[in-house]
Simulated assay, not measured.
Amino acid sequence: MKCIRLLAAVCLTWLSGQAVAAVCVQDDTNQTVCVQQAQRVLVLAPHLTEIVDFVGGMSKVIAVDGSSNFPESVNTLPKLGNPWMLGAESILARKPDLVLVWQSGISMEVVAQLRKAGVPVFVSEPKKIEQVASTMRRLSALLGTEQRSASRIDDWLQQFKSLRAEYGGRSIVPVFYQVWSQPLMTLGGQHAVSEVIELCGGRNIFVDLPNLAAQVSVEGVLKRKPEVLLASGSERDHQSFVMQWASWPQMPAVKRNQVYTLPNDILVRNGPRLIQAAKLVCAHIEQARR
């Protein structure tokens, strides 16, 4: 096999006397993943499903995980349930020529079994905006959509740069992002949510936490005096969120009615809709700033 280094490595193998191009990229575990014209792709994480759609590769997807629900067209595809419950045998039965998985959402033992069986597996774990863009580029290379999606990815990144330019120099607003109410959970500085808050001129009050997610106390939140409270959910969830914190009117965010709920999934899924979430977060932070 002969390889030529481009954005991804293009490798040539000879089958029946003809050169057939294979594309190789490194995944987020630094494993090399090579495919030759993938046509049967399994996508086992919602953020990866959204990325595949964004780069124009959905026509090659034969099934997705049970939580993938965007775009709406994925609901016509077979859904394989929770990836943690899938064994290698059930995945291999679909005869995939490429499997896309989330490192935190699947057993790495299953990944090892798939690779041993000769199936290319791309393991994803993006934690920052640039890493999401890198995932987009690498998957577009594997899916053969690199040329037609490159400008779209560039524009996606440029929108974040524009938000940073617009809001980055303004007064800093302390923000608390709530993942769950019981137990009370938040996200630390390693998560893209912190980066989104920061580029809007805010500051995640728990940016110092080393873990992606962590349990915190009400007292800890009150002590850090957030001026904006954020969560994700429905209108009903929003009402519960407001009521949850109404018992602490001394908190600046509650006192000034700066309690907001973002649409489900767009902020916590590290995929293309992260830019929609960022624009909403910036607007809410700016409202609190005013």
Rank of each mutant, 00 (worst) to 15 (best):
I106S: 06
R236G: 14
Q287H: 11
F70V: 03
A38D: 05
A133L: 13
K95F: 04
A192P: 03
R289S: 13
V10L: 14
W102M: 02
L100D: 04
M185T: 08
L77R: 00
V25E: 02
A133W: 09
S140G: 11
Q131A: 15
E50W: 01
G188C: 10
T186P: 05
Q39K: 14
T29G: 03
I91G: 00
K79R: 15
L86C: 03
E235K: 13
L143I: 03
I266T: 12
Q113V: 03
V228F: 04
E198P: 02
P272K: 07
V121F: 14
V43R: 00
K116Y: 04
R94L: 13
D265L: 05
P263F: 07
D237H: 05
R203P: 02
T49C: 01
G81R: 01
S59C: 02
A45P: 05
V101R: 05
S16E: 15
E109N: 15
T186I: 05
P174W: 08
P174L: 14
K2P: 02
R290W: 07
L222V: 10
A133G: 15
G56I: 06
R224H: 08
G233V: 00
R5F: 11
L230M: 04
V43K: 01
S73W: 02
I266C: 12
R203L: 01
Q147A: 15
L187M: 10
S68Y: 00
Q36K: 10
V61E: 09
E72R: 03
G201T: 00
V173D: 07
D97C: 04
C3D: 09
W180V: 10
V242W: 01
F176A: 13
P78R: 01
G220I: 11
E166L: 07
L267C: 04
Q215H: 03
L222R: 04
S104F: 13
Q190H: 01
L230G: 02
Q18K: 14
Q258G: 06
L212H: 04
P183Y: 02
V193Y: 10
A214V: 12
D28Q: 04
Q18C: 08
V64L: 07
M108N: 15
G57K: 06
G271D: 08
L77E: 07
T145E: 07
Q39E: 14
W180K: 09
P83M: 04
C34K: 01
G87V: 03
D154L: 12
M85I: 11
G118N: 08
L80E: 03
I129Y: 05
M58P: 06
V259P: 09
V110W: 06
A278R: 10
V175I: 11
A19E: 13
T76P: 00
P272I: 00
R256N: 14
Y260I: 06
E109A: 12
I153L: 08
K279G: 07
L86S: 05
R203E: 05
A165R: 14
D155M: 08
L6M: 13
E130T: 15
G201W: 05
Q36W: 03
P263I: 10
V254E: 03
V52I: 08
V121E: 13
R148N: 13
P46S: 07
V10W: 12
G87A: 04
A288H: 09
W248P: 04
Y167C: 12
M1N: 14
S234R: 09
V281I: 15
S104E: 15
R94A: 14
K223G: 11
G56F: 06
L212A: 15
P174S: 13
